[in-house]
Amino acid sequence: MSGASMHNPGAKPMNLTLHVWRQAGANVAGRIVDYPAKDISPDMSFLEMLDVVNERLIEGGQDPIAFDHDCREGICGSCGVMINGAAHGPMKATTACQLHMRSFKDGDDIWIEPWRAKAFPVVKDLIVDRSAFDRIIQSGGFISAPTGTAQDANSLPIGKPDADLAMDNAACIGCGACVAACPNASASLFTAAKINHLAVLPQGQPERSKRALAMVDTMDLEGFGGCTLFGECQEACPKGISIDAIMQMNRDYIVASATKVDMKEWAGSA
């Protein structure tokens, strides 16, 4: 579909009913509140629709719906919300900011809720604190390398399949949809994507076992659930990360445990 044919100025505006989770702050009770969303263009993005609703709320002297967003082009990972029971809404491999209102029909009811996980506490309305992900990365999602001039690119040959696999896993934007969609609120797909990204590259080898141990343990400590292999995470992931990553994470974790790696004096172990 070309850009021109997707833009359809003649498209009929839609009238929708939103059921939105409102919660004034972290430690207060929240509830679902209903709002009409009238005259919504099918060409708007989901976040633009929320902008319009918010402008009307502000005009009416009400508190606008707080939601997280930044790039609005599917790369920063901040906009995730649960839309009609699906993480990032009904479109596969699409973040909430890239979802268009043409995915809905006139008269639809739309349920909008924040990610639900003990490790992702609600900050306000639809905004959750995803810093647990940062702490998982801090515990091992890096390589220790002496700084200085970058070496010649060709001095470290990496086969195409490995390079592709590393890139596929590096595509994770840390949005948290995998946690949100998982019945166990497990962060396995996120953690595994980070572990896989480095596990297939030569730079990742020296710390490979320590990384797997540290990141899995941090994931557990942060209060995420375990993996039952429901498969919901892979379906929800806007970047198409495969649950094959989780298999590799487990392999690395098993090898690391069996070889009793020494975690002392390693940057990742706090």
């Binding site: 009609n84 809720e113 892979q234």
Partner: peptide, 13 residues
Amino acid sequence: ARPTEYAKREPQV
């Protein structure tokens, strides 16, 4: 790990 359930969650796959 999920103390609060969603009002609406649809299993996808």
